[in-house]
Computed example of a mutant assay.
Amino acid sequence: MTPRGKSALLWGAIGALTFLVLAQGAVLLSVPLPVGFLGLLGVAAALGGLVAVVAHRVEHRLTGKGQA
């Protein structure tokens, strides 16, 4: 796996875990959520995948302008 691919997967994991932390905070504050536990896991997986794809597509633009 390339370093860029590994980085994108790690960013995806960070995005998914951040969503789950925010969802847990909403549960602790008694905010009614429209989905259950499995729904939250599905949303987190989809969000993590989206973050990973976006990170892979734009990372080269954010690191070292003018470098290959």
Results as ranks from 00 to 15, higher is better:
M1H: 12
M1V: 13
M1P: 06
T2L: 10
T2G: 14
P3R: 13
P3Y: 10
R4T: 05
G5M: 10
G5P: 00
G5Q: 14
G5N: 14
K6Q: 11
K6E: 14
S7W: 14
S7C: 10
A8V: 07
A8F: 05
L9V: 10
L9P: 00
L9I: 06
W11S: 14
W11T: 15
G12R: 08
G12Q: 05
G12S: 12
A13H: 03
G15W: 08
A16M: 05
A16F: 08
L17P: 08
L17C: 15
L17S: 15
L17K: 13
T18Q: 12
L20G: 05
L22A: 06
L22W: 02
L22G: 01
L22S: 05
Q24H: 07
Q24S: 06
Q24I: 12
G25K: 04
G25D: 00
G25L: 04
G25P: 00
A26R: 03
A26L: 11
A26Y: 06
V27W: 04
V27E: 15
V27I: 09
L28T: 00
L28M: 14
L29A: 15
L29E: 09
V31E: 14
P32H: 07
L33E: 11
L33P: 06
L33A: 03
L33Y: 03
P34D: 00
P34S: 05
V35I: 15
V35K: 04
V35C: 11
V35L: 13
V35P: 03
G36E: 10
F37S: 07
F37A: 03
F37E: 02
F37H: 08
F37I: 12
F37N: 06
F37C: 00
F37M: 07
L38H: 10
G39R: 09
G39P: 03
L40V: 04
L41N: 12
L41S: 07
G42T: 14
G42P: 01
V43T: 12
V43L: 15
V43C: 02
A44I: 10
A44H: 01
A44L: 10
A44Q: 11
A45C: 08
A46S: 04
A46D: 03
A46K: 04
L47V: 03
L47T: 02
L47Q: 02
G48R: 02
G48D: 01
G48S: 03
G48E: 04
G49P: 01
G49C: 03
L50Q: 00
L50V: 01
L50G: 02
L50W: 02
V51L: 01
V51H: 01
V51W: 00
A52Q: 03
V53H: 01
V53L: 15
V54H: 04
V54Y: 08
A55C: 10
A55G: 10
A55V: 06
H56G: 06
R57Q: 04
V58D: 06
V58R: 06
V58W: 10
E59Y: 02
E59K: 15
H60R: 11
H60T: 05
R61K: 09
R61W: 12
R61I: 13
T63G: 08
T63M: 13
T63N: 12
G64E: 13
G64F: 09
G64W: 09
G64A: 01
K65W: 10
K65I: 08
G66E: 07
G66D: 05
A68G: 12
A68Y: 09
A68E: 08
A68C: 05
